[in-house]
Nucleic acid binder design. Structure first.
Length: 295
DNA sequence: CAGTCGTGGGC
DNA sequence: TGCCCAAGACT
């Protein structure tokens, strides 16, 4: 049964895969790595352009490492979760200093890089280096959960059972494992979607436990994300947008204009400084302090 | 380990 | 319109 599932999903991928630039032959491991950072919690369509511009400017890890981290944060633009930009810069520095400027290939080395967790390490190993890796993202979790267990949505955390099951599904042969990884992700992204899945065009609908069971609803507490309006996250985003837009350090008045509520603004600014996304610039002439992206 | 961390688009 | 969702990592 697993064999049939894999064969069909891979065949489906061969004729239905999107033409994504980071999948094209000749894409460097660094370019794949950049795409994986940008794609963390961010839709594909929003990544295409920033990814191309990023690699035009920083074609290698050493190029990015030679730039200030603040420039990475600025170039990140409105992709969201700007700490990813900082971590990508940190990873570029680590690659340059510890790995001779080449993206490492082993799982342990990849996991040693800032911003690289279990998913991203597996994705780089698989997509960039053609290795057999357990690539378990939200798409694969949903596909396997539905097809094999009949579960509508994956839980909040990746369980050990999930990882072991995914490992058992991954083909032994590296090239085929890599193909299965990208194909199962693509099926989750295009067909086996979170809402309104397209079971009518799914290549494995007749094998799907969730479908056979009559699409039972999600069991357990509804996993509700934090509302955004008025949160510290929104405040941080507003402040950082001001700093991204200014080459010169910014004064307190400009930040206050972006977020009038003082207590929350100060808390958010402190957290941005704490994260290393913002630095406080002390003037030499005793005037008011200013803030900027890290030089 | 549940909470935190941006942003924009679809329904 | 508000809510859900999008190739997670980190603490």
């Amino acid at each position: 049964m697993p064999d049939e599932l894999i064969t069909r999903v891979v065949a489906w991928y061969d004729t239905n895969a999107r033409d994504l630039p980071w999948r094209r032959p000749g894409t460097s491991a660094w370019a794949v790595m950049v795409s994986e950072f940008m794609l963390q919690q961010t839709p594909v369509e929003r990544v295409r352009e920033p990814w191309a511009r990023w690699l035009e400017r920083w074609p290698t890890p050493a190029d990015l490492a030679a730039s200030p981290s603040g420039e990475a944060v600025r170039a990140w633009g409105r992709l969201g979760y700007p700490r990813r930009a900082l971590r990508l810069h940190g990873a570029a520095v680590a690659i340059t200093e510890r790995f001779g400027g080449e993206v490492p290939e082993t799982s342990a080395d990849l996991l040693s890089l800032p911003g690289v967790g279990s998913y991203t390490a597996a994705a780089i190993a698989s997509f960039a280096f053609g290795q057999r890796a357990v690539v378990l993202d939200t798409n694969v979790r949903r596909v396997l959960g539905r097809v094999t267990v009949g579960q509508a949505h994956p839980g909040t955390a990746v369980t050990r059972a999930e990882t072991e099951a995914a490992d058992a599904y991954a083909p032994v042969e590296p090239a085929r494992a890599a193909k299965w990884a990208v194909a199962s992700m693509e099926l989750g992204a295009l067909v086996c979607t979170a809402r309104a899945p397209h079971c009518d065009v799914c290549p494995v609908s007749d094998l799907c436990a969730w479908r056979t069971a009559g699409y039972p609803a999600h069991v357990g507490p509804p996993r509700r994300g934090q509302s955004y309006e008025g949160t510290d996250r929104q405040c941080r985003g507003a402040l950082l947008a001001v700093l991204r837009g200014s080459v010169e350090p910014v004064g307190a008045d400009e930040l206050a204009a972006a977020w009038p509520e003082a207590v929350q603004r100060e808390r958010a600014l402190a957290s941005l400084v704490d994260d290393g996304l913002v630095v406080r610039v002390e003037p030499v002439d005793g005037s008011e302090p200013r803030w900027s992206l890290p030089g």
